[in-house]
């Protein structure tokens, strides 16, 4: 992202709000300005994406686009931390907007009361600098991946099941994409899955940190690597990933010279 000067200048209140993260080596005020300039699309704001959005709002992302269809249900509340009990039956995205604005009024928030599909993916991703992919269905994740690769937008894919979490960052043309990993949606995946918020929130927080690093330009993203953690018998490991030469999504995208 380019630093466009005036618009990304920090005022005194912002310098004070972000003071403790401005101390992070290699980040500093230049990194904070880059976050302020950035727009992030978060697909679904449930247990994983909701926490990612919360962390990104706290960190001072300039704009969040939140896409999630449907109304809040009682059994969402064990993990969807942007929701409140009094909001049951109302659109999730509006609860999220309210909570995030309470946390950080500097963040612009656009809500889309729909899930991502082939029809809206390119438009929404085209308006973002980075995508956080946290939908519970592979069709949605693969639609986002396809649009993100075509548009050259980084995509942080974060997922969980039971006490396990997985995370990778897709950098189009440089790393494997989701279609390299998952060339066909697994037929036995179910939208409803076992989840503690402590696990989904961990994945969401890790995804937010990936987004912050990519946008601010410091640290090493999880490029061509899958982070896998299991909190049942606590263990964090990374697995190298490979591009699929015949990948119909990113195969045609040029590769960097060796």
């Amino acid at each position: 992202m380019e630093d466009t000067g005036q618009r990304s200048e920090l005022d005194a209140a912002e310098r004070n709000r972000y003071e403790w993260q401005l101390w992070v080596p290699d980040f500093g005020e230049a990194g904070q300005r880059r976050l302020k300039e950035a727009t992030v699309l978060v697909s679904r704001i449930g247990g994983v994406g909701g926490t990612a959005a919360l962390q990104l709002a706290a960190a001072g992302i300039g704009k969040l686009i939140l896409a999630h269809g449907g109304e809040l249900r009682l059994n969402d509340l064990n993990r969807q931390l942007l929701m409140t009990t009094d909001w049951i039956g109302k659109p999730r995205v509006e609860s999220a907007r309210r909570r995030l604005r309470e946390l950080n009024p500097h963040v612009e928030i656009e809500t889309i009361e729909a899930n991502i599909d082939e029809g809206n993916a390119a438009d929404l991703i085209g308006r973002a600098d980075l995508v956080v992919s946290a939908a519970p269905l592979f069709a949605e994740r693969l639609a986002m991946n396809r649009a993100a690769v075509q548009l050259g937008k980084p995509l942080v894919d974060c997922a969980m099941y039971d006490l396990e979490g997985r995370l990778t960052t897709v950098l189009p043309g440089r790393t494997p994409c989701l279609a390299c990993l998952y060339p066909e949606p697994p037929p036995h995946w179910k939208r409803e899955f076992p989840v503690f918020s402590a696990v989904s929130s961990t994945v969401g927080s890790l995804a937010a940190m990936e987004a912050i690093k990519v946008l601010a330009g410091f640290g090493e993203p999880l490029a061509s690597r899958l982070l896998v953690f299991d909190l049942r018998n606590p263990c964090f490991e990374t697995l190298p990933l490979r591009r699929r030469p015949d990948c119909p999504v990113c195969g045609p995208i040029s590769r960097p010279a060796p």
């Binding site: 679904r44 449930g46 247990g47 994983v48 994406g49 946290a134 939908a135 519970p136 269905l137 592979f138 994740r141 974060c158 997922a159 969980m160 099941y161 396990e164 997985r166 990993l181 998952y182 949606p185 697994p186 036995h188 995946w189 899955f193 989840v195 989904s200 896998v228 697995l239």
Partner: peptide
């Protein structure tokens, strides 16, 4: 040997 079927909990 590590076997990891895809997951998508979000």
């Amino acid at each position: 040997v590590w076997l990891l079927p895809p997951i998508a909990g979000g």
